[in-house]
């Protein structure tokens, strides 16, 4: 009894089914989302990342940050992402359309980073990241994040000390020997620039209808909460 053709047909059809459903249909239905121009802001969202930030994203990828940090905020009422200050609204598909590679992540050994650029802002944010990357124990004692001191260079001061030297930000036991200075490599600068750029605070008019802003009273038991009717602020 040889039913090989039937067997092959079945094997083909089963995977074709999920390939169509998961890959093809979604590529057709939302694979061509476009950025949105906001007239009041005069900008197109999501914002185009700067070149340095895009280089920083490559550093984020090559160091494997994704294995401990997600970049997706769950809706209020499903988990406590909003209460942790990880984002005012849930992440939506349009947030990711300008990223070459989408880094949603599946693990939260550390916090979500989708809006880390809203939490650590500007020069003070940059300085926090420098201390934190040099050794997470400086800013976050007890952290199990590896230190990334190898993104910094300890070098002999030749002539004028570098204006980019960062040892002034570090505690006493991290100070380099006399006559030496610590400077961030380009990769460190890029990575920090990338983190500073992560900020999805803009709410798209189209998606606002579907974005849950307040926890549903009954959503604890019903898995999928209905979207609120009010637009998000």
């Amino acid at each position: 009894m040889n039913r090989a053709p039937l067997l092959f047909l079945g094997i083909f059809m089963t995977l074709a089914f999920s390939w169509t459903g998961i890959v093809l249909i979604n590529q057709i239905s939302y694979g061509k989302l476009t950025p949105v121009y906001d007239e009041t802001e005069g900008k197109t969202f999501p914002l185009t990342p700067t070149g340095l930030a895009m280089q920083g994203k490559r550093v984020y990828e090559d160091l494997g940050c994704i294995y401990c940090h997600t970049q997706q905020v769950r809706r209020p009422g499903f988990g406590v992402d909003d209460k942790r200050g990880w984002g005012d609204r849930q992440s939506v598909a349009r947030d990711y359309i300008r990223e070459g590679r989408v880094l949603l992540g599946t693990m939260r050994t550390g916090p979500d980073l989708r809006n880390v650029g809203a939490r650590y802002v500007g020069e003070s944010g940059r300085e926090w990241h420098i201390r934190h990357f040099y050794d997470p124990q400086i800013t976050s004692p007890g952290s199990i994040m590896p230190h990334f001191a190898f993104l910094f260079e300890t070098r002999k001061i030749v002539g004028q000390p570098s204006p980019h030297a960062i040892q002034r930000l570090l505690p006493a036991d991290y100070q380099p020997p006399l006559g030496y200075e610590i400077v961030p490599t380009r990769r460190a600068d890029a990575l920090i620039e990338y983190l500073l750029s992560l900020n999805d605070s803009y709410t798209y008019p189209q998606e606002s209808r579907y974005i849950v802003t307040e926890p549903e009273p009954a959503s604890e038991t019903s898995g999928a909460a209905a979207p609120t009717t009010e637009p998000a602020k």
Partner: peptide
């Protein structure tokens, strides 16, 4: 692919 289709 564009956006989170990649994740799927």
């Amino acid at each position: 692919a564009r956006g989170t289709v990649q994740a799927l």
